[in-house]
Design a protein around this nucleic acid. Structure first.
Lengths: 331, 331
DNA sequence: GCAAGATCGTGAATCGTTTCAAGGTACGCT
DNA sequence: AGCGTACCTTGAAACGATTCACGATCTTGC
């Protein structure tokens, strides 16, 4: 029942603990015969390295924290997956945390990660707390902000303003003149930027405030999108083009419109954001703004790893990636 | 830059490390004045407990691993979320791992968790490796199987056979006599059981093998569901009732059918499985078999915690929960 | 004024690793 | 024989916390 330690292995193999450790970490220093004997003992006893002790000795674990606002939106889990893959390739592991939309939970995640002695954190913050980030950073953790630029840390994100503009301009080229923007909470910066980008583009194209309506939904889920559709249908005159701040909203909205007998895109066109897998298989395949998810995750990991690798002279980079309009059928 | 340790705090506050530890863990043993002084130093220095060292000393961390086959299916992330909530309530934290459909990755997850010294693991195994489970268990970890019963460990799952039967019987009561079953890989037990349950129910109701078609999709995604729909439409005669092994498949399938001009449920009825959030907001709100997700996760945590609490005389329980048919519009 | 408790604080041992200076052996070379 | 080199192996000192037996100091009661 008691856990097998390196010491047990050493005794069993008739060598010192140092040698067992060498077999584990620098096998080339150990004579072949010895090495095999030790390996055999390891197998026989079912020894599993205690990473906890190893970390303690080594200072920091080979672990990066990943803090996401939710696991229910495939966009985020995919970014995380790409990040994790990149870590694994470098011998690091991911520690996933979810803030679940709560600032308090987000703090708990960060505390947890810091206590767990991770060497860095990739975080998609709800609402950037610069001080907390500085603190983390001061404690020697590499911090990479996802979708948010911060002072004095690395960050990687897509250009949401450009993305919003992309969506709006697409609707405008299709001659839509009455637009509805269905956003999430504007307190969240990426959401706000998508919205501003879209509004700006519309205004630049000669539309006026009166041509624009905004629904600010509390959640960015399909259910919220559905609710938005219901509300949309009470508008008079009806908008002909809708931009949703993410695909989940767009999916719920389109579904409800179709159910109500509205033809998409003939009567109302809809553009989403993110290009999650579900977008392509929707009833009306969704025209949407694709975020370079895999690149986002991968780059975030790279930045974090670069910083942990050489914290001394590391200059923080702000990587901003370009979103891409994916035209399908909904607009 | 160097991490602040309990020793630094002790020096700063002019006490011994033992006292600082007491402030942290048994504050009642420390005089109020001292306690406050230490607390002040902790705040001032920005001390963060090194959970790694604590774990080393204490034997096992207050962490439970959660191994899921994918983060892209909301069903699993929701189960995980419920499990995590229950852990948090008991002072435990969750360590999330994804096997991503690969047996090898699953092994890596388990190795990782064991090295991390977690005190237990909740696992939704791809394909149960009894030996590995026994090994984990032998190493003193509490193991709880999700959706799979195993020998000599706790498990909690829904009754998939009953769920499959529920779905099939619903189609049968609606007078469907030509059924299509769109399943995932039948090598996965829960999938197989859903299928068997459905087939059995159909046969019992007097249908023959010739009335039943099965598509075994490699993935259980909306894209796979879409592909299944395309193939479905080549069938002659067309089935009138379809049971999909999960909601993602069903969603993709329904969407494609609707796109092709097929009326759901009038011409073809579809039943899904899981009742993920998206099911309710689909174009044709999905009739589906709900799994008690929250209860599943919560119960799994409870079982694991019970075992870690008192490993000596703990009898392993096999909890099986009942699925429930949710009738909406698709069938 | 003193013994017996009660109340606090200390310091060393410990958890399982890694690391590294130092010790052994064997071998070849002069 | 003596010495230098290579090659292996050892043992002890960390890492940062917790725990616990033991002192030190203060009360209290007689």
């Amino acid at each position: 029942m008691a856990r097998i330690s390196i010491r047990d292995v050493a005794i069993h193999a008739g060598v010192s603990v140092g040698t067992v450790s060498n077999v584990l970490n620098r096998p080339n220093l150990v004579a072949e015969a010895t090495r095999e004997r030790v390996q055999a003992s390891i197998g026989e006893l079912g020894f599993v390295r205690n990473e906890t002790a190893r970390q303690l000795r080594q200072g920091r674990g080979h672990i990066l924290g990943v803090v996401l606002p939710t696991m229910s939106n495939p966009h985020f889990t995919e970014v995380g997956r790409a990040a994790e893959e990149a870590m694994n390739a470098d011998g690091f592991d991911a520690l996933w945390c979810t803030s679940d939309g709560s600032r308090a939970k987000e703090q708990r995640c960060l505390d947890f990660l810091e206590e767990q002695n991770v060497s860095g954190v990739l975080i998609s913050p709800l609402d950037l707390d610069e001080d907390r980030v500085a603190e983390l950073h001061g404690h020697g953790l590499a911090v990479v902000l996802l979708d948010r630029v911060g002072v004095r840390v690395c960050s990687v994100g897509a250009d949401h303003r450009a993305g919003g503009a992309l969506a709006a301009r697409h609707l405008l080229t299709r001659r839509h003149r009455r637009l509805l923007f269905v956003t999430g909470p504007l307190s969240a910066r990426p959401v706000r930027e998508r919205h501003h980008g879209a509004v700006r583009a519309a205004l630049n194209a000669g539309l006026t405030e009166r041509d624009l309506t905004t629904f600010e939904q509390a959640e960015m889920t399909a259910a919220a999108g559905q609710a938005a559709a219901v509300r949309l249908l009470t508008l008079d005159p009806l908008p002909t083009g809708v931009f949703c701040a993410n695909d989940l909203l767009a999916l719920g909205l389109v579904n409800e419109l179709v159910r109500a007998g509205v033809k998409v895109p003939a009567e109302i066109s809809v553009v989403g954001y993110d290009d999650i897998d579900l977008a392509a298989t929707a009833v009306v395949p969704l025209t949407t703004v694709r975020q370079p998810r895999a690149e986002l995750g991968r780059t975030a990991t790279e930045l974090a790893l670069a910083e942990t690798g050489d914290p001394e002279h590391h200059d923080h980079r702000q990587v901003v990636l370009s979103p891409e309009l994916i035209v399908r059928e909904s607009a």
